[in-house]
Amino acid sequence: MNTERLLILLAEDDDGHASLIRRNLKRAGVINDVIRVNDGQEALDYLNNLRRQTTAEAHVPLLMLLDINMPRVSGLEVLRDVKADPRTSLIPVIMLTTTDDPREVHRCYEAGCSVYLTKPVQYEQFVEAIKRLGLFLEIIKAPTASVGQVLPE
């Protein structure tokens, strides 16, 4: 994987969900830029734009967070598109959904997703997922003092 600054592409149609995800990523210590798109089609547009600037050998430095239920193009369709193209097939994809329906989980892993998370996603889950992916994320290893204190739980 490329070590240049990794971007996070978040495809989420619900503003509330998007805001919660941003907050929890931040709490998990992730300070990479998050680009949010509103549905699957916008995610595909973004990807196609990136592909035009990428040669076959270079991999796109991106982490994708895809909501499944989105208007126009679903997260699952975006996932399939990502995995079908060698320029993007190595992009780690985290699927976000409101249900733990085993069939849906199965479909996502079958299509090649890296992690499947059920909303609302807590920051601990993001930490865990990022660890598992072994990503070169710009994570602040220890939560900052203020963050540590506001998460007593």
Binding site: D14, G16, H17, L20, R23, N69, T98, T99, P120, L151
Partner: peptide, 28 residues
């Protein structure tokens, strides 16, 4: 229906938690 009902519920759940966190920060 249950799928659709879950989406607003995620917001309710997530933002109540956010409010609690904000309240803790206020106390601080």
């Amino acid at each position: 229906v249950s799928h659709d009902l879950r989406s607003p519920l995620v917001n309710l759940e997530g933002f109540s938690k956010e409010l609690r966190l904000t309240a803790e920060e206020l106390r601080e």
